[in-house]
């Protein structure tokens, strides 16, 4: 069985005055139908640009310079904007971080939802409104019939994000890329959205790529985890296995730096230094300058190693693995 989404050696670069910024540089992974994959990294890791690349949302000075992105067997890299527009919203959708900028402020919720439907099929207004109402109810919006006439500014941040999710679900896409969809929300609202997304993905059979910097949130949802650093995947595999025994020192460092991993008042285990500039990456492993395990071998790029479902790119993985 082939995967729903197959990304191979994706490289998305940006031209800048200080040189080529290699935001995504040689990323390969699969997403299966109905699977929830967590894509984790810090700012500058390339997680959002990976998501944008999948939807063909890379604008100049950025460009996909190499690699392949196949959705349901169809190559997306190189498609015209017109062809991409037919896919976006239909087979593949995105939920953005900030719901207050993702919705059009001068159109009512109903109008925006009707437009999203009409872009892909001809449907009567009554039928469109009914689908919109059903979905608003499904994402937990009270009195959905009334909300169709509301404008985004009349809704709270959590409600707006629910509307954005409902719009993403309208055409029943097979994949939704969610870019930090709960980061801008309060803790109690975040939990509601997480629970709803999990149930929706299950009920609709939709695969999710959940982009986040927050390991705890991702662990509540995803079954598989991909950790990115400086434009590359450093580790991937089943989420429980990675969190219990990470193989890449960067994953270990991310986990150790969480306050919940230390006794109250004790020093947190910090990762020294900060991420290198993407325009000026060190040769070899990009994490080496911050890594306590680094030695001369790390001056060469670590090859990808695989062991069953787990993969990592490190010359000195943290546990002995069968050769």
């Amino acid at each position: 069985m082939s995967a729903l989404l197959e990304i191979r050696d994706l490289a998305t670069h940006f031209a800048s005055a200080t040189g080529t910024v290699k935001a995504v540089d040689g990323v390969s992974f699969d997403v299966n139908a109905g699977e929830i994959v967590g894509l984790v990294g810090e700012s500058g890791s390339g997680k959002t640009i990976t998501g944008f690349s999948i939807l063909g949302l890379i604008d100049a000075p950025g460009r996909i310079v190499a690699g392949s992105i196949k959705l349901e067997g169809r190559e997306l890299v190189g498609l015209s904007q017109g062809e991409l527009r037919k896919l976006r919203g239909k087979r593949i959708a995105m939920v953005f971080q900030d719901p207050s900028t993702a919705l059009n402020p001068v159109l009512s919720i109903g109008e925006q939802m009707r437009m999203a439907l009409a872009a892909h099929e001809s449907v009567s207004r009554a039928a469109a409104d009914e689908r919109a109402r059903d979905l608003l109810a499904r994402v937990g919006i009270p009195e959905p019939a009334k909300r169709l006439d509301a404008y985004p500014h009349q809704l709270s941040g959590g409600m707006r994000q629910r509307v954005a999710i409902a719009i993403a679900l309208l055409n029943r896409p097979s994949l939704i890329v969610c870019d930090e969809p709960t980061t801008a929300l309060d803790v109690s609202i975040q939990a509601q959205i997480l629970a709803e997304m999990r149930d929706l993905a299950r009920d609709f059979g939709t695969a999710l790529i959940w982009i986040s910097h927050d390991l705890a949130t991702v662990s509540a949802l995803a079954s598989r985890l991909i950790v990115m650093y400086a434009g590359r995947i450093v580790e991937d595999g089943p989420i429980g296995a990675i969190l219990r025994s990470p193989r890449h020192p960067y994953t270990r460092g991310l986990l150790d730096s969480l306050p919940s991993m230390a006794a109250p008042g004790q020093e947190l285990r910090q990762i020294p230094g900060s991420m290198p500039s993407l325009a000026n990456l060190p040769p070899g492993c990009a994490f080496a300058p911050r890594c306590t395990h680094a030695d001369a071998a790390c001056n060469a790029a670590p090859p990808e190693r695989r062991d069953g479902e787990r993969g990592w790119r490190c010359h000195h993985p943290l546990i002995a693995v069968p050769a």
Partner: peptide, 23 residues
């Protein structure tokens, strides 16, 4: 209860309970 905890096991438990209603 609503803050997701780091889930280390493979079990399907979610480890968080949302507060109902809006602020």
């Amino acid at each position: 209860d609503s803050a997701p905890a780091l889930r280390l096991g493979d079990e399907d438990a979610t480890g968080f309970k949302p507060i109902r209603g809006e602020l």
